[in-house]
Design a protein around this nucleic acid. Structure first.
Lengths: 128, 128
DNA sequence: ACATAAATTTACGTTAACGTCAACTTTAGC
DNA sequence: GCTAAAGTTGACGTTAACGTAAATTTATGT
């Protein structure tokens, strides 16, 4: 009785069932099955959240998978793999900090345009 | 003598000439012409910068155009249009602040994973 | 002037990320 | 037990954002 149906989970995130099946095909989700029917767990729900978050930031599904697979608690204990993981994290962090800068730069320009716009409006009120 | 050739400008931003022609087709750039040949101005260069910045943040070229056209100094003085512009800015700012939150959330999760990873590495060193 | 490098248009090809049937099976409420 | 709703697997369609190749014109260095 536990877990979400495909329609339910899709509904929660405002996407279609087709999208969930597609994400599964790409290895982002791996729901259990009751017969043929998919049943999504909390883990699937979390992975879906992270997938959509990644998408909003402009990552491809493939990149999302890489990132999310890192996060997943199925990490090994092998020293080499752990070091490799740390490297990957550092790399991804760089990309994210770049995005952060892009956001900030865009917001700043936006503020300037708004200020200019408000100035013009004030003039219109005074004159017109 | 002033202005950039298509190859030069493309090279400066690490994209192909084809991309610049494509952006022009979509109304993002409108370079001058010497005969048939395109010549890109500083304005074009700025618009290209903003286009690529928008792309990195996951905006479509159409969304980029909307945003960039707002920024452009060819704004009218009509009160209605200025008010409309302010509304658009507010709307876009909301989207950007959302992205910002997504970035922060991802960075936070990343830090946690890294910490967990470093802990495991320490144990490995201690144990051998 | 002439070869070479760069630019142009036209047009078809490609990849990602789903949308949209169709045809069929399964599940759930009454 | 039966019907309607929900789910499943193909398989083909679509849009965005270019890539790529061909055929032709235009600059440029010597």
């Amino acid at each position: 009785m536990s877990g979400y149906s495909i329609k339910n989970l899709a509904g929660q995130f405002g996407v279609t069932p087709r999208a969930l099946r597609f994400y599964e095909d790409k290895g982002l989700l791996s729901p259990a099955r009751r017969g043929q029917t998919r049943i999504y767990s909390e883990r699937d729900k979390t992975r879906l959240l992270l997938t959509l978050r990644g998408k909003r930031l402009g990552f491809s599904l493939e990149e999302c998978k890489e990132i999310i697979d890192m996060y997943d608690p199925s990490q090994s204990n092998d020293t080499r793999q752990l070091v490799r993981l740390c490297q990957k994290i550092t790399e991804h962090r760089r990309a994210l900090l770049e995005k952060m800068k892009d956001v900030e730069a865009t917001l700043k320009t936006m503020d300037e345009v708004e200020q200019n716009c408000l100035d013009k409006l004030l003039k219109n009120v005074a004159q017109g």
